[in-house]
């Protein structure tokens, strides 16, 4: 693991390949007596797309929330490029970790462009006085933000809908807008929480392309997903979370062939029960 902090602060997106971007160590999250996440280690390197899978209720989203400062982990620590992440979600975003939500959380009554402009918040500084006095600096910063936001909308393919209310976008485009909004904060690591939930196969494929394009911009991606085909096409590495603990981590091949993963998703066959071998086979099929 490399511990040298990056000097490239103003453009966190440009990190040299192979460097550890996110390093979570022993993250444990307890809610009263319930341990939702138990001692999970996970690293994400720059230029990497890492998948996080697991059955419903495995603690994936809780783990995400621990990473983004929405929850403060009971134990363990999360480092982003060598520094421990602060425990407030807006500070995490400012540090360079952006996220999307499992159930889309756009600012429904703002326009598409305004949504992305809100994402620019951490990368701009104009406060109330600047807004009231409207000096040249204000106009320059607004114009710059707007140009960058339009660029991002172009990138996800929503440029011509910039003036629509975000609530009126179709589902797939709302997901894209959420990604554009997250990218607006110029992250070094993007966390996607089920980006293809509710999408049809074409839309899923388009999202796949989008995630690859984001990776090519030099942004590391950590993605939660239930769509196995999507995950295994996309990810360089996949971690499996079952009942709050990390079961396996490795490339797609390793994970797909791991018996414990199959068991976690499909249940364990009885010892010597009739058809148990078939069950294994179908499990493999389903997962590939």
């Amino acid at each position: 693991m490399t511990t040298d902090t990056t000097t490239n602060k103003d453009r966190p997106a440009a990190t040299p390949a192979g460097e550890t971007v996110l390093d979570a160590k022993g993250v444990t999250m307890r809610f009263g007596g319930l341990t939702a996440v138990h001692s999970v280690d996970l690293t994400v390197n720059s230029g990497e797309i890492v998948g996080l899978i697991g059955p419903n209720g495995a603690g994936k989203t809780t783990f995400f929330n621990c990473l983004t400062g929405l929850y403060i982990p009971t134990e363990g620590e999360v480092r982003y490029k060598g520094t421990v992440l602060p425990s407030k979600s807006f500070k995490v975003t400012a540090a360079g970790v952006a996220r999307t939500f499992q159930n889309i959380r756009l600012f429904a009554n703002m326009t598409v462009l305004e949504n992305v402009l809100v994402g620019r918040h951490t990368r701009t500084k104009e406060g109330l006085w600047s807004a009231l006095l409207r000096g040249p600096g204000f106009h320059k910063a607004e114009a710059k933000s707007k140009a960058r936001a339009l660029e991002l909308l172009e990138f996800v393919g929503l440029a011509e809908k910039a003036d629509h209310l975000s609530r009126n976008l179709p589902y797939g485009e709302q997901r894209k807008l959420e990604i554009a909004r997250a990218l607006a904060s110029e992250p070094g690591l993007l966390l996607l929480d089920e980006p293809t939930a509710g999408m049809n196969p074409q839309e899923t494929r388009a999202t796949e392309e989008l995630v690859f394009a984001i990776r090519d911009m030099g942004i590391a991606v950590l993605v939660i997903e239930h769509d196995m085909r999507f995950i295994f096409n996309l990810c360089d590495r996949v971690a499996v979370l079952v009942q709050g603990e990390k079961l396996v981590e490795g490339d797609s091949e390793t994970v797909q062939q791991d018996d414990r993963v199959i068991a976690a998703y499909l249940g364990e066959p009885f010892e010597g029960a009739p058809g148990s071998t078939e069950a294994d086979a179908t499990g493999n099929e389903e997962n590939s």
Partner: peptide, 30 residues
């Protein structure tokens, strides 16, 4: 004051907070 603050970074942050505070925080708004 209303007009100028509404149509600015801070005004957008206000509306974002009104719309969805959790998402606004996740977008880096204090």
């Amino acid at each position: 004051v209303f007009r100028r603050s509404e149509n600015s970074r801070i005004g957008r942050a206000w509306v974002a907070i009104r719309e969805d505070e959790t998402a606004a925080l996740a977008m880096g708004i204090n």
